[in-house]
Design a protein around this nucleic acid. Structure first.
Lengths: 191, 191
DNA sequence: CTCTTATTAGGACGGATGTCCTAAGGTATC
DNA sequence: GATACCTTAGGACATCCGTCCTAATAAGAG
């Protein structure tokens, strides 16, 4: 197989395992096993575990960027786009119940490990943060757009954490709906 | 030294290390080093690492219970008590920036590890959840007291996650103040 | 002081981990 | 078909981990 394909395969498998088991709890052997290659071959593509993590984070950023572009194409209004973001917690309900938010749980883990990739992980948050900020600006809230974006991020993270703790889908839906209503109320405040 | 004292000393050290480094990333040697005893002596007090975790969680529950009692004594009104809870994110600002919320980050980690102590960790959340529920009931919101309690928990967790990601104290204070205002608004709705 | 019990220190153990090396197998080019 | 390079497999390595055992020490009771 060509190196590019194997490398991508490794990143995909590592991405999923880092999400579902955590970065530290996932070993080279785990990833190699999931991909179906030997541990030795591994070393040909990535010298260290940190290299894999960096590649996984880069892949996540690229994927999220594509997702945001798609949302912009699908949703016509800024409020609709923000609501689309909030809707993640419902669309990915099952995974979030079991493994939490991929972004939040990774930054939390890397922060505790004092890992150098912490800043790259935070960059995923920043991607959403600025995108949400743009939407709030388009909503006529240029002055406090970033504050509002941070509020949406924080609320989503809170929902994810509690969702993981209690597996309560009613709670998740109720909070998401409430946050969407809040967004619409912010839109009404424009002008 | 007597066994009780050493045991408590171990639990205290493990509590701090589990919080600051994460459960998995903390080894027997780390805890033994922090306490100043040998790894062998360790085994006399706790047979397995899971035993230590169970003891740490039990200690956290007991400590939080004491804290809630104190808040009830200090604060006269239900709203004041809820605001006192929200104020944690500001009072413990420095630690939360570096290590996140002790309860949220632990449940997140244990969930990913598929650890058996996950339920005990969730019990710490439940302690706050029912206490907050009681306060909202006292506020005249018996019907949706638990929903409101969950909302406060989620909001606090969200603030903690973003605080850890961005170390932005202005954000933390703004969100905490906003949440306190929300509590007061809920109180106003009673009648 | 003596004997028993409670507590400690230090190290052995099997296993897992991240890293690295080397030899073999494929693949493409001339 | 021969050569050079890309890719793979399998294992060696030093280290650390959780667990467990044993012998020495401290403490307390008679």
């Amino acid at each position: 197989m060509d190196a590019k394909g194997t490398r991508e395969h490794i990143v995909r498998a590592a991405d999923e395992l880092f999400y579902k088991q955590g970065f530290e709890h996932t070993s080279f052997a785990d990833v190699a096993g999931a991909v179906g290659i030997s541990r030795g071959n591994f070393y040909y593509h990535f010298k260290t575990k940190d290299d894999i993590l960096a590649a996984v984070i880069a892949a996540r950023i690229a994927e999220r960027r594509r997702m945001l572009d798609q949302w912009e194409a699908e949703q016509d209004t800024p409020a609709g786009r923000i609501r689309r973001y909030i809707n993640i917690v419902i669309a990915n309900e099952t995974d979030i119940e079991d493994y939490g938010c991929p972004v939040g749980t990774l930054t939390t883990e890397l922060a505790k490990l004092g890992h150098g990739c912490m800043d790259s992980a935070t960059a995923i948050f920043t991607l959403f943060r600025s995108w949400l900020g743009e939407q709030f600006t388009a909503l006529g809230r240029a002055d406090d757009a970033d504050d509002l974006a941070m509020h949406v991020l924080a609320a989503s993270q809170g929902i994810a954490v509690m969702s993981q703790a209690y597996h309560d889908r009613e709670f998740t839906r109720r909070e998401a709906a409430q946050l969407c209503a809040w967004v619409d109320a912010q839109a009404a405040k424009e002008e």
